[in-house]
Design a protein around this nucleic acid. Structure first.
Lengths: 232, 232
DNA sequence: TCAAAAGTGTTGTCCCTACACCCATGT
DNA sequence: ACATGGGTGTAGGGACAACACTTTTGA
């Protein structure tokens, strides 16, 4: 019987930074931690990687369990593995960031967990190294969104250009010229204009668009330069 | 005494995809595996994460041990954690890619390990999921190198533009116009022209350059569009 | 009629690519 | 002299940012 004798074994967890957009501000979803230590403090959604699942599986399972949502946009970020990051026992955690449509979440809220949306810039202090994870996720989201059309994942199926515009400004924490933005985003060819208008925001109303799924899936790897004066 | 009772524990390893450049072709450094199972098969440089080190520490330690080199460019890629990826025992592995100056390596080769450079496109089959790791690393290297000035890490302190040019072509597996390339790369302002010329490649000789460390460190996060017709 | 937001037009600038051509030098 | 890479010049086109303007419609 072959074995890797004498090597230490560790717990492996996943933690998810869940981003949402309420139409005005970027938010993250936090939960009150249900186990010791630090019980009842705010933390990211997380859980241990089970014996028969990959970390990706685990992250999807955790999200399903805590939000009720499946098929969420989920991206592996990095591993957090400093020896002392969990005071009880050595635990390595794989950080993920998730993008969800906040309204979809509210529709099927799972009340078993005390979860709450917080403004990204006004959130409680989190346990362990979770604040670092949020900072890293924010940075990575910005980076990725500048080059790839992923922010659609935080909007409903039907959305308007002004909505998308505000979202881009929120994520990048900057002002973007509305006129150039709408042209740039439509010129990607990823949007399909619908006949219907959203009239809640203005008298004139803004046309709804939906994503061209086919082109979206084909182009999700392409570089798009979605941000003016691209700098990080 | 608080504990996370009943959760499974796993081995955690690191595996490094080490890239090098011999002046003509992109290569990777492989080792003959020294333990069962699959002993004497070719594999990536790897090792288990020790009790008092982070995965990043472990990757640096493994590289130091097997190549003798310190301060190597090392970047975390992703975690590989499918339940059955190691047939002996569940092991999660953090993949890293490393860029090293192949000549520096040869200068202080560690003969304790049977290590060998292989052409990236002509390498032996590797154990477990290491072939997948190499494919992922190649893709990530290409992606990153298109936007950030990291390929310098594979060249000596003094290098010529034609050398850099071939390296870019190798990494991206494409032809790049030499004339436009040299202008684009010098226009980044990251290079300092030296008085000396390399005359091994041509009669005229090509000027040596070195990296402007100060600007390099300041700009390593900037987007640079180093590849024409940027597509992935 | 007016305010307010949506969205189109316009223009100058800069960058990028393609390609021609000159440069330096060992043989 | 001439072959061989190294490197610069140049011109056309396209993208992009800046900003003016029109459109739509509820109040």
């Amino acid at each position: 019987m072959i074995e890797y004798s004498g090597q230490p074994h560790y717990l492996v967890a996943v933690d998810c930074i869940v981003f949402g957009f309420d139409g005005e501000h970027l938010k993250i979803l936090l939960v009150k931690r249900g186990l010791e230590p630090e019980i009842n403090k705010w933390s990211l959604m997380g859980g241990f990687v089970g014996a028969n699942e990959s970390p990706d599986d685990a992250a999807n399972r955790v999200l399903k369990k805590m939000t009720g949502l499946e098929g969420v946009y989920l991206e592996q970020m990095q591993i957090y593995g400093e020896p002392g990051r969990d005071p009880i026992e050595r635990t390595l955690s794989v950080g993920y960031f998730a993008l969800i449509d906040i309204h979809k979440y509210e529709a099927q809220l799972n009340d078993d967990y005390e979860a709450e949306w917080f403004l990204i810039n006004d959130r409680p202090k989190l346990i362990f190294d979770h604040d670092q994870m949020v900072a890293d996720a924010r940075k990575k989201l910005r980076y990725k969104a500048a080059l790839h059309p992923i922010l659609f994942e935080m909007l409903p199926k039907k959305f308007t250009i002004p909505q998308l515009h505000i979202l881009f400004e929120e994520v990048n924490d900057t002002k973007i010229d509305t006129r150039n933005f709408s042209r740039k985003i439509t010129s990607t060819g990823l949007l399909i204009k619908l006949a219907e208008k959203d009239r809640t925001g203005s008298k004139k109303g803004a046309f709804y668009f939906k994503l061209d799924k086919k082109k979206y899936n084909a182009n999700s790897q392409a570089f798009l330069n979605l941000m003016p004066n691209l700098k990080i």
